[in-house]
Write a protein that binds this DNA or RNA. Structure first.
Lengths: 137, 137
DNA sequence: CTATTAGTCCATAAACTTAGTAGGCTTTTA
DNA sequence: TAAAAGCCTACTAAGTTTATGGACTAATAG
């Protein structure tokens, strides 16, 4: 399961995607519309900024906005930035790999099953982008 | 990510799958071979028994064993029994569903993306069985 | 130049989950 | 009846997640 933080991040990004090209959006606006605790959202958006997905403007008329067109950022990227691994176990994670202490990856049945699952998941998450998160209202 | 508990469960089941039809297997044997803390493993196997996947025999010559042929139990089932949801967010979980407080599932973009991911994952995990977890040695 | 707006940053608290342990109880077999 | 082996409950320790408070900095308007 994705953490709450990751879910909030995706919702916020979806909101910003819908507002893309319309200037900065207030944290408080995102917080209200998406029902995300404002201080928590603050740290999430900051992290996304530090990771190069968002940029911000301070002062009056300020806020957060997507740097690139929504279609340029995949869900896989977004999830990894704030939420960590997409794979179900560490030894098949591409970005957060950790070796199993006890099993040999060449022969481990679990490894194979999980690697296949990871590939199927990634196939979707690397095709979908922030543009898909905009609500169809 | 799957919890350690779930990973242990899958490894233990894989071990038992390899020994299917050969009588009960000691907790201590599984613990040693799969490097799983024995007391932790004990609770996991018990849970799997209570969920109808394993059965056990007490006393000398006792131990745990699979009730059904390894091919009869899918990985999806095994994961759900000890590890909970397979879906990435609660509102798309089939077995551990929880409604989103704030979004409408008919229009939520995140819902759609995650539902699709869940389907792709399930397609694999419902086809793979404990038989696949046996190490190819 | 100063008041206001709005993001930045750090520290910490509260809640929850996970991982693992302890130890006595029950059943089975020889 | 003793040894083997699982059963079961409770507990704890640690870590993670979620969330908040408050002071600071930057930008803008007038």
């Amino acid at each position: 399961m994705l953490s709450k933080k990751t879910q909030y991040a995706l919702k916020a990004l979806g909101y910003l995607a819908a507002k893309y090209g319309q200037g900065p959006v207030l944290i408080s606006e995102i917080s209200m519309k998406k029902k995300i605790p404002i201080k928590f959202l603050e740290t999430i958006l900051l992290e996304l900024k530090q990771n190069g997905v968002l940029d911000s403007k301070k002062g009056k008329g300020g806020g957060y906005f997507l740097i690139n067109h929504p279609k340029k950022t995949t869900l896989a990227r977004a999830i990894r930035l704030v939420g960590g691994p997409i794979a179900l176990i560490p030894c098949v994670s591409l970005n957060f790999y950790e070796k199993c202490q006890d099993c040999d990856e060449a022969t481990c049945g679990l490894y194979k099953a999980m690697a296949q699952t990871r590939d199927a998941t990634l196939k979707i998450l690397e095709k979908k982008t922030l543009a898909e998160l905009m609500d169809a209202e």
